[in-house]
Design a protein around this nucleic acid. Structure first.
Lengths: 228, 228
DNA sequence: GGCTGGTATATGGTATACCAGAGAGAATTC
DNA sequence: GAATTCTCTCTGGTATACCATATACCAGCC
């Protein structure tokens, strides 16, 4: 190591208080099981600012951002409430997810490299039938990882950004038996088929497979998941 | 615009200053031709708050929201800048638009009423060949109206919200010869075909037609529109 | 004369005080 | 005792003062 040269990265890059409050709040909200029983859905600006050790101003800006993202709803002189999405809103999100990932898969066939596509195998193979028997939470995460990977192959940053926003909400109901065992097995078969289409550079087929796959999930949630 | 029309706001004062500042700024930004020559792209918080007659606090919140939407970029101790999207960003937006409107058309086949679909004819027929010769700006607006109508038929609020956000950006480059005469004629033919598919309740075909139609626009912009 | 380092200022970030309206519970009326 | 009104408090909205730093400009040293 060249000790004769000063470290080029003293940086520090101290984030703004707003950004830090935003991250902290977002992860706190997404971690908690807002669909379970009687969790407190109300927040208080002054209380939060005190607990974060910052003033209300940057905290308010963070809350305003979360409000726009739909994680929280700020009501004048009433309070700040963590929002539970309705079932139909979840349906809409999955529909948008299906449309965008389908397009991403289609595009990936022309812009992704062979290595990138090949890398998808790991995301599926690591999760054989034994693993399926593990906690569904793990499978759910691996499942979302796979889908995010496909989206990433499209090199379309906007699609990635939008779907990331959606996954935050969809993940919140993952524990509600969306992915039970049978679905997991079927899901893995679907995933392998999708990879095949990508490897064959068949954009139309890849798009259709992805769309159908996700729309089946949508129908499943519609039928078996009970929210509210 | 009809200035003699009654204000749609029954009360007017109930909106927060933030909301009003947001609306005012957003319309001001979207109206200006930010891709033209040497427009001033820099904003100043204090100057704006003075001109709006409000304090910096609600103005800053409005700006933060515009920042998150991507219309503006707030840089600490540097300034606030109206952002010009890059060409590749516009490409991504049109791609997302294609994916979502395609899905919307497909869904519309099952959830839209006959009357709702029939109403689409007006949006196309009112714009015959004569009208095509009018200012392209008008056509562009009518064009977007048609697409928004299809999206509305899907009854998917999320798709409407996302695409509304995209149209704001796409409209900003509408004057840059996206829709020249030939394309307009072809476009109208496409639109009629789309309506046929919807009337036949052929979701798959409607989706594909819409997708192809918009992706052709994408290719056109890719080839002929020069940004930056 | 040109580079270096200090300094003024412009600008977004943050803290804080105050405002106004919604709600709950006390006070009042019948 | 029940319905109504009043008041008090709690909460988000707004105004304002101050803070920290990026930038430009200026002075001074080589």
């Amino acid at each position: 190591m060249s000790a004769n040269r000063l470290s080029v990265e003293p940086i520090g890059e101290s984030q703004s208080l707003k950004a830090r409050a935003y991250k902290a709040l977002k992860s706190a909200i997404t971690e908690m099981n807002i669909y379970d029983s009687k969790v407190e859905l109300r927040l208080d600006e002054r209380d939060l600012s005190a607990r974060f050790g910052i003033s209300r101003t940057p905290l308010r800006e963070a809350l305003a951002q979360l409000d726009q993202e739909g994680l929280v709803r700020v009501v004048a002189r009433r309070g700040i409430f963590i929002v539970r999405r309705t079932k139909s809103e979840i349906m809409e999100m999955i529909t948008v997810w299906a449309a965008l990932e389908s397009m991403a898969a289609s595009q990936a066939c022309t812009v992704a490299s062979d290595q990138e596509i090949a890398a998808l195998h790991e995301l599926v193979d690591d999760f054989g039938q034994d693993a399926v028997a593990r906690r569904m939470g793990e499978y759910s995460d691996a499942n979302i990882t796979f889908h995010q990977a496909i989206i990433g192959l499209s090199k379309n940053q906007l699609i990635s950004d939008i779907t990331d926003g959606l996954f935050v909400h969809v993940r919140a109901i993952r524990n509600r038996a969306i992915f039970e065992n049978d679905r997991a097995k079927r899901s893995i078969a679907d995933h392998k088929e999708i990879i095949e289409a990508l490897e064959a550079r068949d954009g139309e087929r890849a798009g259709k497979l992805v769309c159908d796959h996700t729309m089946r999930l949508r129908d499943h949630v519609e039928r078996y998941v009970d929210i509210e």
